[in-house]
C-alpha cells in the first residue's frame, strides 16, 4: 500500500481535534504507515498547500484568513473532510453570531477591564468576517465528521476507511442516550435544577431528576463519557439527524417533549428555560443554517430578555 498524501488545516478552533489524532495511541502507527502528513500546522513546518489526496479541515470560518485557508485546502486536496464540530456546524465560535463584530471588539479590546490597550489590532491579525459560518458555507465538503473532538474510535475508522479506499461507517442515528447507562424513569420532580445544584443520582437519567441534559438530542460521536461520569451532556457533537432535517423540530422542543413525559415539569417551562440559557444549549450548533436559520430560533431576542431580567433583578 503506497502512502497517501494528507494535508491538515486548522481554522478557528481550539486544536482539540488535532489532539484526537494523538489519542489514537498505538493505532496511530497503522495510520502513519499509510499516510504522508504534509501540511499540518501543529506538526510540520510546511507553509504552502502541497497537492494531497485527503484534506482534514477543523475549525469554523471566523476570519478572512480562515476563508483563504479553506479555499487553498479545497484547491490542493481531492477529498475534504469537515473534521470536528466547529468545521461541521461552526462550533463554539458561533456564539459570535449573537453579537455584532463591533460589540465583540468593544468587549475584547476597547472596554476590556483587564488589559491596558484600548486599541483594536489593525495589523498582523486577520480581519473578522461579518459572521461565523461552518466550513461548507465557503467550500464544498465531501464528508462530515462531527464531535468535540470526534472520539478516536470514529477518527480511526474514518481515516482507515479512506486510506483503504472503502466507505467509512456512515453516521448512526443513535443519540448519546444510547450508550448512557442511566435508567430513564418517570419521577415526581416538579422543577428544573441547575447543574450546580445538589448531587445527581448516578443511576438515574438526568432528565428524570430535573437536570437539563442534551443527550437525547445529540449525535453519539463520543461514546457518552459525560453522562456516564456524572455530567449532563452539553451537546458537543451537534444535533441528531431528525432535528437537522426537519425545520419544525428543535433542540429545545425535543428535550422538553421527553423531559415533560418523565417529570411533572410542564413542557412550556422547559422550553422557556432552554431559551433563557440558549447560549449554553445552542453553543455548538447556532452558526449552522440548519439550526440558526430555523424560523423559531430567536437567540438575540432570548438573550436580550435574559439580560433585561438580570439587570432588573440586580438593580432592585
Amino acid at each position: 500500500m503506497s502512502s497517501i498524501p494528507v494535508n491538515i488545516e486548522w481554522l478557528s478552533d481550539c486544536s482539540g481535534c488535532h489532539v484526537a489524532i494523538v489519542d489514537l495511541h498505538e493505532k496511530i502507527l497503522t495510520v502513519l504507515q499509510a499516510v504522508n502528513i504534509q501540511r499540518c500546522p501543529v506538526l510540520t513546518d510546511i507553509k504552502g498547500y502541497p497537492k494531497a489526496k485527503l484534506g482534514l479541515v477543523s475549525g469554523a470560518i471566523r476570519s478572512e484568513h480562515d476563508r483563504h485557508a479553506a479555499e487553498e485546502m479545497r484547491k490542493s486536496c481531492d477529498l475534504i473532510v469537515a473534521w470536528g464540530t466547529c468545521a461541521v456546524y461552526g462550533g463554539i465560535a458561533g456564539a459570535g453570531n449573537v453579537h455584532s463584530c463591533e460589540e465583540i471588539f468593544d468587549t475584547v479590546y476597547r472596554n476590556n477591564k483587564t488589559t491596558c490597550s484600548t486599541q483594536c489590532p489593525s495589523s498582523e491579525v486577520s480581519p473578522l468576517e461579518p459572521s461565523v459560518s461552518p466550513l461548507d458555507s465557503v467550500i464544498p465538503v465531501d464528508l462530515y465528521l462531527p464531535g468535540c473532538p470526534p472520539h478516536p474510535a470514529v477518527v480511526f475508522d474514518a481515516l482507515l476507511g479512506l486510506v483503504e479506499g472503502r466507505p467509512p461507517r456512515a453516521a448512526t442515528k443513535e443519540s448519546v442516550c444510547a450508550r448512557c447507562k442511566r435508567q430513564m424513569e418517570k419521577s415526581e420532580v416538579d422543577r428544573i435544577r441547575k447543574n450546580s445544584e445538589g448531587v445527581p443520582d448516578p443511576e438515574q437519567c438526568f432528565l428524570s431528576q430535573g437536570y437539563l441534559c442534551m443527550g437525547s438530542v445529540t449525535l453519539d460521536r463520543c461514546l457518552s463519557p459525560c453522562p456516564l461520569n456524572g455530567i449532563p451532556c452539553s451537546g458537543c457533537a451537534g444535533a441528531t439527524m431528525q432535528i437537522l432535517t426537519e425545520p419544525n423540530r428543535d433542540i429545545r422542543t425535543e428535550i422538553a417533549e421527553r423531559m415533560s413525559r418523565l417529570t411533572l415539569i410542564p413542557k412550556e417551562q422547559i422550553v422557556r428555560e432552554i431559551e433563557r440559557t440558549s447560549k449554553t444549549h445552542y453553543s455548538y450548533t447556532m452558526a449552522t443554517p440548519m439550526i440558526g436559520e430555523k424560523p423559531t430560533f430567536l437567540i438575540r431576542k432570548w438573550t436580550e430578555e435574559e439580560r433585561e431580567d438580570y439587570e432588573q433583578d440586580h438593580n432592585d
Binding site: 473532510v81 465528521l145 474514518a158 461507517r169 456512515a170 425545520p247 419544525n248 443554517p289 440548519m290
Partner: peptide, 28 residues
C-alpha cells in the same frame, strides 16, 4: 434513537430541509 423500522411505505415530508438531507449521507 434505539428504534428502527423497515419494510414500510416511505412518505415524503414536504417540510424537510432539503439542503441538509443531501448532506446527511456524508456524515461519518
Amino acid at each position: 434513537g434505539a428504534l428502527a423500522h423497515a419494510n414500510f411505505h416511505t412518505v415524503k415530508n414536504f417540510y424537510r430541509d432539503l439542503a441538509f438531507c443531501e448532506k446527511m449521507e456524508r456524515f461519518l
